[in-house]
């Protein structure tokens, strides 16, 4: 199997740093929070200061603490949803691609149906029927979000599986007499790892958006702090129009940053899967290092084979120049 190292472009590194930062915040955020996020002990609507880094809400709650505590719910639900959706899309996608025939028809129809139904409105309908105590349950919310977000991954995985189905190593496994399930999950699935990773990140991205949206319109329990609930209270108290930017801008920026980080890492995976994008994504300095022309000429998008070979090419380029 090829080495799974991501291309070391600045985009990927920045993405990994951002995602890493928020994962740390998820783990230790609630301990770092200086105050109880629900405590109304302070004066309302304080501007940011040394005591309250991001000021207070109209109820006198510390916004910085809400941001730190809210990271956990937001990220945990998103990761749960991403995990559940990836398992679903892997099962459906690989089965459809590998089995073919009527099973493929049925499973493809199923994923296309879920792809065509607009996810967030469906989520809103399901969620509005949920009893209030389930709305604060991470697992319930995560599962429901995954139900509306798995289809895209299944489609991509199906296409990839179909291209793998008739490779020699799969053929060999079939001849040896391995069971179908075993072939699908131990022979085919590992070769789909980059696609799986990409679809997982994409789903997490979607899940953050979906969860925050549900919270923003007041459909998750207000007892659980997440970035969407913060936006909900800010909107409910007219913070945007009265200029209390410190109330609604920080959670929004956090959501956007996590999303950007995930998307940047995904870029790296895309460049890993598609060698042409890899060359397109190089900076001019890297291109010089590789001995490629400074401006890529038309019809000559170089295919860079793997990151590990890059140093070898660079060394050769140096030799030539000497």
């Amino acid at each position: 199997m090829k080495s799974l190292r991501l291309p070391r472009s600045p985009k990927v590194i920045i993405g990994l740093v951002i995602v890493g930062f928020f994962i740390i915040m998820t783990v230790i955020g609630p301990w770092l929070a200086p105050y109880n996020p629900s405590s109304t002990a302070f004066a309302p609507l304080l501007s940011p200061s040394a005591h309250h880094w991001l000021g207070t809400t109209s109820l006198g709650q510390d916004i910085f603490s809400q941001l730190l505590v809210g990271a956990r719910a937001t990220m945990v639900v998103a990761l749960l949803a991403g995990l559940a959706a990836t398992i679903l899309s892997m099962t459906v996608g690989i089965a459809a691609g590998y089995l073919g025939g009527a099973s493929d028809e049925g499973l493809t129809l199923l994923s296309n149906v879920f792809l065509a139904i607009p996810g967030v409105p469906l989520l809103i309908v399901i969620d509005s029927y949920l009893p209030v105590n389930s709305r604060s349950n991470f697992f319930v919310i995560g599962l429901i979000i995954s139900l509306t977000g798995w289809a895209w991954g299944a489609r991509v995985l199906r296409a990839q599986t179909m291209s793998l189905r008739n490779r020699d190593f799969v053929e060999a496994a079939r001849i040896i007499g391995e069971k179908r399930g075993r072939i699908m999950f131990t022979e085919v699935a590992p070769n789909l790892l980059p696609v799986l990773a990409s679809s997982f990140l994409f789903t997490v991205l979607y899940a953050i958006g979906a969860y925050v949206t549900l919270a923003y319109i007041g459909l998750t329990s207000t007892a659980v702090w997440n970035w969407g609930t913060m936006l909900y209270w800010a909107q409910a108290n007219n913070a945007p129009l009265s200029g209390e930017w410190y109330w609604f801008v920080p959670p929004g920026i956090c959501i956007a940053l996590v999303g950007t980080g995930l998307a940047l890492v995904n870029f790296g995976i895309d460049e890993f899967i598609n060698p042409r994008l890899r060359a397109g994504g190089l900076t001019s300095r890297q291109r010089r290092k590789l001995g490629l022309p400074r401006r890529i000429r038309l019809g000559l998008t170089p295919v860079i084979i793997s990151t590990s070979k890059r140093s070898a090419v660079a060394a050769r380029a140096k030799l030539v120049s000497q």
């Binding site: 958006g209 945007p240 129009l241 609604f248 929004g252 959501i255 950007t260 870029f267």
Partner: peptide
């Protein structure tokens, strides 16, 4: 190409948040 990270950021911003900031 410098536009790409910017575009990625805009893609990740929830619609309603961008709308709120623009409204303000």
């Amino acid at each position: 190409d410098a536009l790409i990270p910017t575009a990625t950021f805009f893609q990740a911003v929830p619609y309603f948040f961008l709308a709120t900031v623009m409204l303000l």
